[in-house]
Amino acid sequence: MTISAESAEPHIRTGQWEDALTFVALHADKSAYAELFNYFAPRLKAFGMKMFGNEQQALEMVQDTMLNVWKKARLFDPSRGCASTWIFTIARNVRFDMLRKKQSRKDDISADDLWADGDYPELEESATDQWETMLLSEKLAPFFDALPVAQRLVMQKVYLEEKSHQEVAEELDIPLGTVKSRIRLALDRLREALDDTRS
């Protein structure tokens, strides 16, 4: 870094920030902290502006980061890296947690998203018979059998006979919407049943 004569920035020697942090840690030295603060706070703000593109959040990051630097100064271990690396780590974590807090949680998988109207690609690969038996005998068979007849019939045609929803509707002479709603009801039942077996 070049430092011009008229620059207000202090000249930085190697080890300066590490020393400053040590003073802060040992003596709660406010002037050493102020030196660190005056150097890093505006840079953190510029860094925050780049990351958030928003002044308020950038300032929040500066505040949380610098507060942590003050409070946690005693945790700084110069043998493990520079002061700037340590401060960067704190800022990164503060920023990450700020973003996490803002994000809304949870997205749920809906059966509708998955349902490509019965036309699934058929692949050449060996069918996994072992799996089918397991799936049926161990988990689903009892619940499958317990489905109302109308629902079971539709499920059987779609999943065992691999017919499309449209084909099933024509075969049973019922509206397509009814086929879909029966499948949905059947899936809901199977889900509930599986959910109960969990506990």
Binding site: I109, A111, Y120, E122, A127, T128, L135, R191
Partner: peptide, 13 residues
């Protein structure tokens, strides 16, 4: 992709 295992698609959660 194959056969009855497709039932796992809607139930896989």
């Amino acid at each position: 992709n194959k056969g009855l295992v497709r039932l796992l698609n809607p139930l896989q959660q």
